[in-house]
Design a protein around this nucleic acid. Structure first.
Lengths: 185, 185
DNA sequence: GTCAAAGGAGACAGACTTGTCTCTTTTGAT
DNA sequence: ATCAAAAGAGACAAGTCTGTCTCCTTTGAC
């Protein structure tokens, strides 16, 4: 039961924080949507920041599992690049069941919203990016570090373009160039 | 005198908002650093959001003028790409006098911090990205729209990598690939 | 010199925030 | 059945924020 409440809190926090931004969502809103009492929340989490970290962790797992599953079908680095940018496109267009409606990258958003004041959150966001890079590295074997860095940079850029510039096709626009780079390596 | 106060307010707001984030800086902090009274601020600006918009406008001009000056020396699209990513690298490493210490892109940050609740701010941030694209288009004539999009996406990605992932060399890592793409076009 | 406009200083209202605490009820293990 | 731990409900403290308002001083135009 205790774990159940904790899970409920994290789920609701992740959903609200991602949808509206961490600073726009108060503890009370999380409590209201879950129907859980404030005392229970502070029984499980020392502070709001700890709840934020738990939400980041949940999203971290959620995202990595989704991306890994998608990349499973790729049997070459070229195919992996295609799958990566097609997956991003599906995400931007809200065509991924496992992920809530696209509101940018939760880690970029959180780092910008909280990173200045909370170093632990900034570090976790940085770490997530590193983990995604590692996952891509695994699925794109024999790809040089240099090209992998560019692929990662294109991925981050596409997320920003999709969110800030509202260009949901940003990822697809990168695909031909990304393939050229991978092929030449 | 009136204009002078207004300029002081916008300058201080831009500096503080960019350094600490919009939501972390209250009106009172802007007033304290300038020594200007609250009544005077609300005489010039209807609300905090209007001051934010004024700060965005100032930064918009500041950034575009700086980038345009840097790109002046480029006499070909290949040279323009080199100058672009070298300029970004200088920016990331705080080697640009005209710009305050690097804290990411003020427009990405503001869109993420305020975009959900204030549509006007989100629109201005989107517009800034469009203006930078237009500037690059002017300085990289005869470059296809497709490759220009990729160059812009790399630029956004490099900013995010430099800020969130703390990789200040992100822009330089993109340069060889960017040149390959431009050359092949 | 006069007088209105602008500005300084800051109290204040009203609405938020996080986190603590009390009191009551439910639950689950023994 | 008992009894301690967990949870519900929410008051409350202490702080934050924006925006308004008052009172007083300075300044600049005529």
């Amino acid at each position: 039961m205790a774990l159940n409440k904790q899970t409920q809190l994290i789920d609701a926090a992740l959903q609200l924080f991602y949808e509206k931004g961490i600073n726009s969502v108060g503890i009370n809103e999380v409590l209201k949507t879950t129907g859980i009492a404030k005392k229970t929340l502070y029984n499980h989490f020392k502070s709001k920041d700890e709840l934020v970290l738990a939400a980041l962790k949940k999203r971290d797992q959620q995202f990595l599992i989704w991306l890994d599953r998608r990349l499973e079908e790729a049997d070459s680095k070229e195919k992996a690049v295609v799958v990566l940018f097609e997956s991003l496109t599906d995400w931007f267009h809200n065509q991924v069941e496992e992920l809530p409606p696209f509101r940018g990258c939760f880690f970029i958003n959180s780092a910008i919203e909280c990173g200045v004041v909370n170093n632990e959150i900034a570090a976790y966001c940085k770490d997530h990016k590193q983990q995604v890079r590692q996952l891509l590295s695994k699925r794109m074997s024999h790809l040089s570090d240099e090209v992998l860095d560019v692929i990662c940079t294109l991925k981050e850029g596409a997320i920003v373009m999709a969110y800030v510039a509202e260009d949901k096709n940003a990822a697809m626009k990168c695909l031909p160039s990304a393939l050229t780079l991978v092929a030449g390596n």
